[in-house]
């Protein structure tokens, strides 16, 4: 029995099948990345593992025990940070630490919180409220809060999705470093193939819904630590990137009704020659049309 197992897990929302027949097994200490398109059920999958939602069919088990609800053994870093806005950085983490380590003395807890605040390089900002932090800083608080409860498995739901490319790179390095020291089992959800290749031991693509399921896993055997700049010239990295990208593109090509695009209709009104010549700003109502394009 693997450390984390999902057996034939399916989930629908209101008759709409989102995930079907998900099978996944992850060993202890493994870093697995799940890559997929937006809106195909990545958050749904991680919420199933976290126990926030229940599968319609199949089961999730961690260390042999069936998951029946959420718990601090599965540390979830939410896609949208989910920091409590009325608590400072320190207090947000304290809420988690106080709950999970009730037997500790106050000093022990404070020292523990400080350690994780320092790990994500936020000691200078620990008395600030979330709204006084940048997006990248908030994300680091969210990671620190989850690491501080010492979960058995770390679930990261597009943790860097909302950040700019530069910050994203820095935080990827931080996550890689933290993983090197803590050696936790990690499930990372991402929409970036490069991010998955930099961080994971194994990449699993998520197909396209309705009824998305997991594709074939692709092991990433690149040596660690992986250097973000150097890796671009590594032939193995290039090969893997092409492999994963092609798989994802293939899912997309296979679907019948594939994408909904916003098209702009040509302006067919007779032009008023008297009107002042200006760049026409907003579009007329009705000028925009949504069209579904069939690509297969």
């Amino acid at each position: 029995m693997a450390f984390l197992e999902l057996n034939n897990v399916s989930k629908s929302f209101g008759g709409q099948r989102v995930l079907s027949d998900i099978n996944l097994s992850i060993e202890e200490g493994e870093f697995v990345a799940i890559v997929g398109y937006s809106g195909q059920g990545k958050t749904t999958l991680i919420n199933l593992i976290a126990g926030l939602i229940k599968p319609d069919k199949g089961e999730v088990s961690l260390e042999g025990k069936v998951v029946t609800g959420p718990g601090p053994d599965r540390g979830l870093v939410f896609q949208n940070y989910s920091l409590l806005p009325w608590l400072t950085v320190q207090e947000n983490i304290a809420l988690a630490v106080d709950q999970v380590f009730p037997g500790w003395t106050a000093e022990q807890r404070l020292a523990h919180i400080d350690k994780y605040v320092a790990m994500v390089k936020l000691s200078h900002a620990k008395d600030r409220l979330p709204k006084q932090l940048s997006g990248g800083m908030r994300q680091r608080v969210s990671v620190a809060r989850t690491l501080a409860i010492n979960p058995r498995i770390l679930l990261l739901d597009e943790p860097l999705g909302a950040l700019d490319a530069l910050t994203r790179g820095t935080l990827q390095d931080e996550i890689a470093n933290i993983w090197q020291t803590e050696r936790k089992t990690v499930v990372l959800i991402t929409n970036s193939v490069d991010e998955a290749l930099l961080l994971a031991d194994r990449i699993i693509p998520l197909t396209i819904g309705p009824g998305a399921t997991l594709g074939e896993s692709i092991p990433v055997t690149l040596a660690r630590p992986r250097d973000r700049k150097g890796v671009n010239h590594d032939p193995e990295f290039k090969r893997l990137r092409a492999l994963v990208t092609n798989q994802l593109l293939a899912f997309n090509a296979n679907r019948k009704v594939s994408l909904s695009r916003k098209l702009i209709r040509p302006d067919l009104l007779p032009e008023d020659l008297e009107a002042p010549r200006v760049n026409r700003p907003p579009r007329r109502p009705g000028e925009e049309k949504n069209e579904v394009v069939v690509t297969s």
């Binding site: 976290a50 926030l52 609800g69 959420p70 718990g71 601090p72 599965r74 540390g75 979830l76 939410f78 949208n80 989910s82 409590l84 809420l95 988690a96 709950q99 999970v100 409860i149």
Partner: peptide, 21 residues
């Protein structure tokens, strides 16, 4: 719902969910 999920993941008691969230 996100705030409530934070409480659920931490398994906050009903009372703590009320007072803290």
């Amino acid at each position: 719902q996100d705030y409530l999920n934070v409480g659920k993941v931490l398994k906050l008691s009903r009372w703590k969910t009320l007072t803290k969230i």
